[in-house]
Design a protein around this nucleic acid. Structure first.
Lengths: 232, 232
DNA sequence: ACCTGAACACCGTTCAAGT
DNA sequence: ACCTGAACACCGTTCAAGT
């Protein structure tokens, strides 16, 4: 009877393997368990396939990571039509940030893969090209767009790049100093943390609105660029 | 005679192992071969020690990475004395950037470790505390420093966060499209790249001065903050 | 010709056996 | 009590044996 259950049909998943299915599965696994827990063997297992079958669709693990980046970039909204450059860029960056919040492992992977590659992945190239197009349509000279791209940097992909999250989580530090010693050793950080906590009448513990701060930083940057544009 | 050579002295390196030696060796290995090639076993080999000996000085590999970050942050110059806030912050960020250029693997490690930890590593905490102190001494209100920290983000540690380096290197892309197709597919990037290449009479190939662009972006940010400060 | 199991050369870390 | 070799449970990827 075991035999009957297995005869006449594919022994594994019915839908055939494809690069797209591999990538989407890999992204889902990374979302669940982080990128450290992502292995070729685990992806294969999730797809109910032998590990070596993956190598028909991705050359090696780095190529898989590149493909995953492109899946993510594909989630960024296209630019708003008919909007001025500033709102178009702003909206797109905020869309990129929403994507990053869904995939917290993305910055690390993008950071490592972008540095290893001679040229960005195709989807990133297309995204950057379209972004440059938005600036150009807004009246930026080539030289000024070049500056703008450097100024925006990875913020274009929604990187918030905080050095420390005001809303802490993650591994509790075993040898973290007690609060009173913290206050003595890092007086300025402590003062800031306390002020922020009391500042707003927010329900959440930290009192720091990350989204608002991101937009604040983004707007400061865009305002700076706008000022440069007006000067020419 | 082999026997004589080995008796009466430690069979391996004479200087005793210490956390500092482990960390410095790990940083050196990462500088040479990148962080992917860094393993506990390889560090042990470089120190002429059995792998397990490392675990007396670092709890596990993540703790080692944290320690390496602190070594790097220790390389950042202390703030200039007697300078106004803007030059003090500017100088320090540029020092951080010089550090990052010496350790290209750093952003990836910082990115991944900072996200995993509830609180930054001790050296990063001290650095941020001192940075906040610079702003405060310059007359920034607590609320404004908070904004400033979000605006500066990981630029404080010298992250240049380019999405693509104008001076390409790294793995050549096997399935990269030929130049003429590149131009058709990414017209804006191509136009920008060509303009930048011809623009300056630089000796280097690319024509993009990364250092100048970094300072440009940094100054735009600092100017924006200065404007906010003046408004209060 | 295609697919895949076993094998290779690595990992980080545990643990028990040695001194 | 300390140190360490062997072992465990994983990796990514090669390769030869199977169909």
């Amino acid at each position: 009877m075991e035999r009957a259950a297995r005869t006449g049909s594919a022994p594994r998943s019915r839908t055939p393997l494809s690069k797209g299915r591999v990538l989407v599965t890999a992204v889902a696994l990374a979302d669940e368990g982080g990128v450290d827990a992502l292995s070729m063997r685990r992806i294969a297992q999730a797809l109910d396939v032998v590990p070596m079958a993956l190598y028909k669709h991705v050359a090696h693990k780095n190529a898989l990571l590149d493909g995953m980046i492109d899946v993510l970039v594909g989630e960024i909204d296209p630019p708003a039509e008919g909007a001025d450059w500033k709102t178009a860029v702003r909206g797109r960056v905020l869309s990129a940030r929403r994507m990053l919040l869904r995939h917290p492992w993305a910055p690390e992977v993008i950071e490592s893969r972008m540095k290893a590659r001679a040229t960005p992945t195709p989807a990133v190239m297309a995204y950057l090209d379209s972004m440059i197009g938005l600036f150009r349509a807004g009246g930026f000279s080539i030289a000024l767009v070049h500056h703008a791209m450097h100024v925006m940097g990875s913020r274009l992909l929604g990187f918030s790049q905080e050095l420390f999250q005001d809303t802490p989580g993650g591994e509790p530090d075993p040898d973290a100093p007690p609060p009173e010693e913290m206050a003595a050793r890092y007086p300025h950080i402590t003062a800031l943390a306390m002020a922020v906590a009391h500042d707003e009448d927010s329900v959440v513990g930290s009192g720091c609105d990350d989204q608002a701060e991101f937009e604040f930083a983004l707007d400061l940057t865009l305002d700076g660029l706008e000022r440069l544009l007006a000067r020419t």
